[in-house]
Design a protein around this nucleic acid. Structure first.
Length: 777
DNA sequence: GTTTAGGGTTCG
């Protein structure tokens, strides 16, 4: 809208300028800068008559003065070209406040003569400029009286004085409306029924090929002003219909709300009189029109109702030729399970991450027939009001029934979809609310009742394919208890613990998503879980122990041979390696256990490649001893073995001689730990699986040393291949980006158990006696 | 300077 005539009340603009525009001071304007998104503001001090340039283009020149700028150069010439020149010349008056946005700056050839700015502004529709003119009524009235140039005076006809075959202007309060929809002809259509204080109704049928030029009505009670509407008699009643030059303004009908016209007209008159009319109509409507109650939120829907929903579009997808899916949210949670319309993953438009985040708050609305075309054109993220959504209860007799949302075909009762601008007060309120919604809360599966869970299995399509799916092989296999029957998750959730169940479910999600974070150390004695220490800690401990000088008296005993040397670097570090002697004389290095004093991380690492076991030690007066238990007490291959600090009581190293004297020591970590008084910590996978089966969802812990993944937890941290293998397995169980429908089934055993910790008692679940099927691995 | 729709809930 290149030229807008607005009103000023108490020096303050009623209509804020578009937010992307930034004000620029006249004195700061410089050549060579981009002023596409800038505006300047001032008072019209002089305007010249509208003229035509040689090529026939309309041309209009205005001098703009910045009254707040006390410097010498406080005015600038504005050159307006084309249609904007014509529009502007019609409405502008000296003294008006004038705002120009999106102009071009050029050197002014007349700067020196007239004392204005060194540059002038060039303004035209082609350049993307916009002009806003603020006119104070008093000044305008005075100037109109003085100049005797009278603005067109509109006459408005009350609804009880309409005559067939006339074209009139009128005001009315919206009693009913159909938001613009695609007609069967070439245009959009909107049907609007108005009333006014004469208590006569007028239904208007409005057509336009341009969606924007139909009145922007958002709710019953809005007030409209129509210019040039044709009146006809139809079925014994007066009817309004668009005629050439039809134009409209729409206002919020709330008493006391700002009087802001919604329009697409480039130029319109709107002054004191109009303001007064709107305010009077608002007051009349407040006591004469049925006021609808508060808007229905998703949290307030009932199984069988029609309602209007103000919401944000999160996703959309084609379904078939006659229906289309809209995924929307309003920040509240529907109290019933809601249906999920199955669509191909590739057909779903919207931000995947957001769709996932909001999955518990979005509802699927299936729109049909004539609404499909409009629905397709909607932008993700836009704010909508969907009129007359029908809620329907699916499978009413089953105990897992859910609510379906339909926008049926046709336009009865104003059924349709309207896009609300961000400036709409309801949208502002909704936006603020959406930003405040605590997603963590709504995503917390544990806080959800089984009824609230994903309703994927609750519609007919899914039931049909249910048999098919039952025949699918599970990606997991039970290693025991095959005689048990499956139990639904809902039943498990409603039962007391402890018990054991066989279930058939899908892995909806799991934690941690970074698989290496699932590896912990477990003490089977005190049942504690701890993080795997990182290599840096080990390095520090080694450096600390290197400060302890080796004790030569401890070298070369009956059960080990010792070798010592000094590094040639400045540190002159002493390194001792004690090779444990087995009975067998001929021993291969790969079968040998050695102990090392004063070695670095790198040296130890190298030794583990050649020898079977490496134990870092340091000297005391009468024996070798293990280092701090934050360091591994044993390294074997790629694996570092740790002891539980709490449960271990380390013994002198000579206790190891009992193993060394065996004929062929196996050097099992568990045995070594035992003789050294170490409580061995076991590597485990700890994961939280969220399992769903259509009746409920359960968070079950996977506590696995090796059996489930058939990958030893101890090896995963140092083996890229195994990490990849585990990631592939998880991708198989829970393919990323897949709908729940397409996930594979898992057969699992789970056991429930009671947990009493600092918080309230709760029931937890753990997977057991289950393993990944061979063909999956 | 035509047609569309011309208010009054649901096939899915």
């Amino acid at each position: 809208m290149p030229v807008q005539l607005l009103r000023i009340i108490k020096e303050k603009s009623e209509t804020p300028l578009p937010s992307h525009l930034q004000e620029e001071d006249l004195k700061d304007l410089q050549e060579g800068f981009d002023y596409t998104n800038k505006y300047v503001q001032g008072t019209v001090s002089l305007s010249y008559p509208l003229t035509k340039l040689g090529d026939g283009t309309d041309f209009f020149k205005v001098v703009l003065q910045d009254l707040h700028n006390l410097s010498q150069i406080n005015s600038i010439n504005i050159l307006i070209y084309g249609k904007m020149a014509e529009d502007c010349a019609k409405v502008i008056h000296n003294g008006d406040t004038f705002v120009v946005a999106g102009f071009k700056l050029a050197k002014s050839p007349t700067a020196k003569e007239d004392g204005t700015h060194g540059c002038h502004l060039e303004v035209s529709e082609e350049a993307g400029s916009a002009i806003y003119i603020y006119s104070t009524p008093k000044k305008r009235a005075a100037s109109e009286t003085a100049s005797a140039s009278v603005a067109p005076k509109y006459v408005y006809t009350p609804l009880n004085h309409l005559k067939h075959g006339t074209v009139v202007n009128l005001y009315g309060v919206v009693k009913f409306f159909k938001p613009p929809y695609v007609s069967k002809g070439t245009d959009y259509c909107s049907v609007v029924t108005l009333v006014d204080p004469s208590n006569v109704k007028l239904t208007c049928t409005l057509f336009s090929g341009n969606l924007d030029s139909l009145p922007k009505i958002y709710k019953v009670g809005d007030i409209v002003r129509f210019h040039r509407i044709k009146v006809r008699e139809y079925n014994g009643q007066m009817q309004g219909i668009t005629s050439a030059g039809f134009a409209s303004l729409t206002f919020d009908g709330t008493v006391g709300a700002p009087v802001l016209p919604r329009t697409s007209s480039k130029v319109y008159t709107f002054m004191d009189e109009e303001q007064k009319t709107i305010e009077e109509l608002r007051v009349w409507a407040a006591s004469n029109l049925t006021i609808s109650g508060p808007a229905t939120k998703l949290s307030g829907v009932q199984p069988m109702m029609f309602f209007d929903l103000t919401c944000q579009l999160v996703g959309k997808a084609k379904v078939d030729g006659s229906s289309f899916l809209l995924k929307v949210w309003d920040g509240t949670k529907c109290p019933y399970p809601t249906w999920k319309v199955p669509v191909e993953t590739g057909d779903l438009e919207g931000e995947t991450v957001l769709l996932h985040h909001l999955r518990n708050l979005t509802v699927d609305i299936l729109v049909y027939d004539n609404h499909v075309q409009l629905a397709k054109s909607l932008k993700i993220g836009s704010f909508l009001r969907i009129y007359s959504i029908h809620t329907k209860q699916a499978n009413a007799d089953s105990d897992v029934s859910c609510i379906e949302f339909h926008l049926h075909g046709g336009t009865c009762y104003g059924r349709g979809i309207g896009v609300l601008p961000e400036s709409n007060p309801d949208v502002k309120e909704l936006k603020a609310f959406l930003e405040s919604v605590d997603l963590a809360e709504s995503q917390n599966m544990e806080s959800m009742s089984s009824l609230e869970l994903d309703g994927t299995f609750n519609n007919i399509t899914d039931l049909e394919s249910h048999l098919q799916r039952c025949q699918q092989l599970s990606v997991t296999v039970l290693t025991d208890h095959q005689d048990l029957n499956n139990t639904e998750l809902k039943t498990i959730l409603n039962s007391t613990a402890p018990q054991q169940y066989r279930i058939r479910a899908k892995l909806r999600t799991y934690k941690p998503q970074k698989l290496y974070q699932s590896i912990k150390l477990h003490c089977s004695k005190c049942n504690s879980l701890q993080e795997v220490p990182d290599g840096g800690d080990f390095d520090l401990i080694l450096q600390g122990s290197a400060a302890t000088a080796p004790n030569p008296e401890l070298h070369n005993t009956s059960w080990y041979d010792s070798v010592m040397w000094t590094t040639r670097d400045q540190k002159q570090r002493k390194i001792v390696i004690h090779f444990v002697k087995p009975d067998e004389m001929l021993q291969q290095p790969e079968d040998t256990l050695l102990m090392i004093e004063g070695g670095t991380l790198k040296e130890i690492w190298k030794l583990t490649k050649r020898f079977k076991c490496v134990i870092p030690v340091r000297s005391t007066e009468d024996d070798l001893e293990l280092l701090d238990l934050s360091a591994p007490f044993l390294l074997q291959g790629n694996i570092k073995y740790y002891g539980c600090k709490q449960c271990s009581t380390p013994k002198p190293i000579k206790s190891l001689s009992s193993l060394a004297t065996e004929q062929q020591p196996s050097w099992e970590p568990a045995e070594i730990a035992q003789v050294l008084g170490i409580e061995l910590l076991q590597y485990v996978f700890i994961m939280k699986f969220t399992l769903v089966d259509g009746t409920g969802a359960i968070n079950a812990y996977l506590f696995d040393y090796e059996k489930f993944f058939q990958i030893p937890a101890s090896e995963i941290l140092t083996n890229n291949f195994l990490q990849q293998k585990m990631q592939m397995t998880m991708n198989m169980l829970c393919p990323p980006g897949r709908k729940l429908d397409d996930l594979p089934w898992l057969e699992c055993f789970i056991k429930s158990y009671n947990v009493r910790d600092a918080t309230k008692p709760r029931v937890c679940y753990q997977i057991f006696d289950t393993t990944i099927a061979e063909d999956v691995v």
